[in-house]
Simulated scan of single mutants.
Amino acid sequence: MTKKELNTFLQSTTNKIKDNVLSKVYDQLALQPGLRANLNPAFPYPHKLRVGIINNCLAVEYIGPNNDNEDNFNYEGVYNEYLDVYDFLGVEIKHLKCISLPIQTNIENMSFFLGDSMTYLTDYFYDLTQLPYEYLQFDGFVDFSKPTEPIFVSNTNFFWTDEEGLLKIKHIDFLEIFPRDEEGNVYYQDTSALDNFANFIINYKVPTYKTELHGILNEFIELINLRDVSEPQITKFLSDNPKILQLAFGVNELNPEVLLKWQYNTDKDDLKPDFLPIRMDGYADLMEFKLPYLKRNPMVGTPERRHSSFEINTAISQLDTYEEWCSQKINTDWLEQNKNIKILHPRRFLIIGHSKDFLKEDRAKLRNKRNTTVFTYDEFIEMTRFQLYRMR
C-alpha cells in the first residue's frame, strides 16, 4: 500500500466512523446527557483516532478522553506488515517471560500486570484495593494479536516493565480488531454494521467516568510543564485539588501543609511537610513534592561509589528533619492531641523529576540506604489517569 493509498483509506474510514457512529452517539448524548456517566470516555468524539493496517488485521483505536463540545479530533494511520496489535498499541512486552492465552472473545474491564510491574507499583505506595477493575491478571495476559473474527477491547490496562526496568502503562479505552481475509485484504464495517456499532456504544456501559477530574489533571500537567513553576505552586494546586493525589496513591486523607511545632525550646524552625497522607492502618506518612525538572543527574560518582547528588541529598535531608520531629514522642503526642493525626515510623515519599532521570537500581539504593521512595511526576500522572478514567 502506497502512502497515497493509505491516506485515501484512512480518510474514507475516518469519515465513515464520524458520519455513521460518532455523530449518532453525539446526537443521542445531546438528547440524554445522563448517558455520559457510563459512556466510554473516547466517545462521541475521541481525543485521537488511530487506524492500523498491520500483520494480520485492521485495528481501530479510540483514545479518550473527549470534549463533548468539540467534534474535531486528531487521527493517524499506520501501515506496516511487520507489526502486530501490541506493536500498534505501543505495548512492548515481547522481551518478557509471561503466560499468554490466545483468545477470540471480547476483552472488557481487565488489568494485566507483567514483568516487575507489580513489585514496582507496591514499592510506590500503590493500593490495589482501590482498583475499580473487574478482572486482574498477574504475569499473564489474554493474547488478541491473532484474531480470527472481529473482537473489541474495552477499558483494559497493561502494566509492564521495559528492558531497562522502567514502569510502562497503556490504557485502552476502546479498540476494534478485524482480521484480514484470506487474500490479505482489509475492510471496515458497512453502513448497517456501523449503525449497529453506534447503538452498541450508546447502550454499552462502562464504570463511571469522572470528566471534571480529567480537566483538573490537565491543568496540573500544564502547570508542571511551565519552566518557571515553583514548589509552592505545585503544593498549593494539589492541596486545592486533592482528588488527583488521592487517586494516584489510593488514600483519602492527605493533611496538606500541617505545621509541625517543636514541643521544646530549640533554635530549629517549625516544619511544614507538603502532605501527611494517612495509610490504611490510620497512621500518617511523609510526602514531599519537589520540582519536576532536575538541574543535573540525580546520582553522581563512579559506578563503585555512586551516590545521590546535592539536589537529591537536599530533598532527602528535608525528609530527615521531618522524621527527626516525628521520632520524638513529645511532638507526636502533641500532633495527635491537637491535629488528630497519628504518626509512628512514617514511610517517606519524594516526588521529583521524571522516570528517565533515574535508574531502577538508583531508586532501590535510595530506598535501602536513605529510607526514601522516589516517585516521578510522569508515574504520578499515569497512575492518576489510570484511576480517574474508571471510578465506580
Results as ranks from 00 to 15, higher is better:
Phe9Pro: 01
Ser12Asn: 07
Asn15Phe: 09
Lys18Leu: 07
Asp19Gly: 07
Val25Thr: 02
Val25Cys: 02
Asp27Cys: 04
Gln28Leu: 10
Gly34Phe: 06
Ala37Val: 15
Ala42Ile: 10
His47Glu: 12
Val51Asn: 00
Gly52Tyr: 02
Ile54Cys: 08
Asn55Trp: 09
Asn55Arg: 12
Ala59Ile: 04
Ile63Cys: 01
Pro65Phe: 03
Asn69Glu: 10
Asn72Pro: 00
Asn74Val: 15
Tyr75Val: 04
Leu83Arg: 02
Leu83His: 06
Asp87Lys: 06
Leu89Gly: 05
Val91Leu: 07
Cys98Asp: 04
Asn109His: 09
Phe113Ile: 08
Leu121Val: 09
Leu121His: 07
Thr129Gln: 08
Val142Arg: 10
Asp143Gln: 09
Ser154Asn: 06
Asn155Arg: 07
Thr161Met: 05
Thr161Asp: 02
Asp162Val: 13
Glu163His: 13
Leu166Pro: 01
Leu167Trp: 11
Lys170His: 13
Asp181Trp: 04
Gly184Gln: 01
Gln189Ser: 10
Thr191Glu: 11
Asn196Cys: 12
Phe197Asp: 00
Phe200Leu: 12
Phe200Thr: 11
Asn203Met: 09
Thr211Asn: 13
His214Phe: 15
Gly215Asp: 11
Leu217His: 05
Asn218His: 11
Leu223Trp: 04
Ile224Met: 05
Arg227Glu: 08
Val229Tyr: 04
Ser230Leu: 14
Ser230Asp: 07
Glu231Leu: 09
Leu238Ser: 04
Leu238Thr: 04
Asn241Asp: 03
Lys243Ile: 15
Gln246Phe: 11
Asn265Lys: 09
Asp267Cys: 11
Met280Leu: 14
Asp281Met: 00
Met287Pro: 02
Leu291His: 04
Arg305Lys: 13
Glu311Gln: 12
Ala315Lys: 01
Leu319Cys: 00
Tyr322His: 05
Cys326Gln: 05
Trp334Asp: 11
Ile352Tyr: 01
Lys360Tyr: 15
Arg363His: 02
Asn368Tyr: 15
Lys369Asn: 15
Thr372Pro: 02
Thr376Trp: 05
Ile381Trp: 08
Thr384Leu: 03
Leu388Thr: 00
Leu388Asn: 00
Arg390Asp: 09
